[in-house]
Design a protein around this nucleic acid. Sequence first.
DNA 1: CAGCATCCCTTCCGATACTG
DNA 2: CAGTATCGGAAGGGATGCTG
Lengths: 147, 147
Amino acid sequence: MKAENLRRTRTNVRANVRNVPGPCAHWNDEDADFIREVLDLVGDKWSVLIIGTLADKPVRYSDLADAIPGISQRMLTLTLKHLQRTGLVTRTSYPEVPPRVEYALTELGTSLLSTVLALAAWSADNHAEIRRHQTEYDRAGTVRRTV
Amino acid sequence: MKAENLRRTRTNVRANVRNVPGPCAHWNDEDADFIREVLDLVGDKWSVLIIGTLADKPVRYSDLADAIPGISQRMLTLTLKHLQRTGLVTRTSYPEVPPRVEYALTELGTSLLSTVLALAAWSADNHAEIRRHQTEYDRAGTVRRTV
DNA sequence: CAGCATCCCTTCCGATACTG
DNA sequence: CAGTATCGGAAGGGATGCTG
């Protein structure tokens, strides 16, 4: 189990501490793991784009590649497998020549889509304000660039 | 602008194509950029944990470090700066000895929290089913491990 | 058409040491 | 206490070539 490198350092102190303050009022440590699992899935570079593309109909592999700007073959395949494993999409291959494979959202995938749409709406709503903050923050950092 | 390596390859073909199919019924390419920006922010390893910890009261630097299991000093500082730049948290330092610095959610940060809570709820609700799919998927892959 | 395997460069991030 | 600076391993992800 390679527990040998649990040497206590200044970082990551809390692992060895009893009686810690709860991390957050909205979830416990275990919940935090779950949400991070979902965020790792959803926060990756392509998953959300794929889910969005599959939103209302099954799409075949090459059509996905065409529909999603900039995705590489490798990442398309990898992400689809990942989504499949999580139970968000299904893969159906039709024994024809030439071969045809269609990917579709499962019910689970659809339910996640609607949740993600809330985030998309937030993004659209607050995009301008975020930009404002960013440029202001960056401008403040440029003061006295003495070099 | 180093446009020289725009040699058209089999990957990433769409960049050179006119008349492409829209990527998704729920957002256009530009929206996709915004949502990915937010996902990059929120999908990173620590942002959500920090936001959750700041949910109902300002918290000082060292208390954040204690409250969030496993975070390194480097990542705490980095993520806080990132969240600041985006306008989700504020930093207030009190000129005392010893120094005290408190981080707090802005209104923007609070609004994002409530959106993220929806995702947290989804995670909790569907965690068990996701696990089911994962183990089933993995079991299927273990068939005929001939080596 | 629908992938898989390989190479390789970039980014992320934890550990560690040092400062106002 | 609240950071900054630097290093090195691990992971992410694009390009390319090959297969059923």
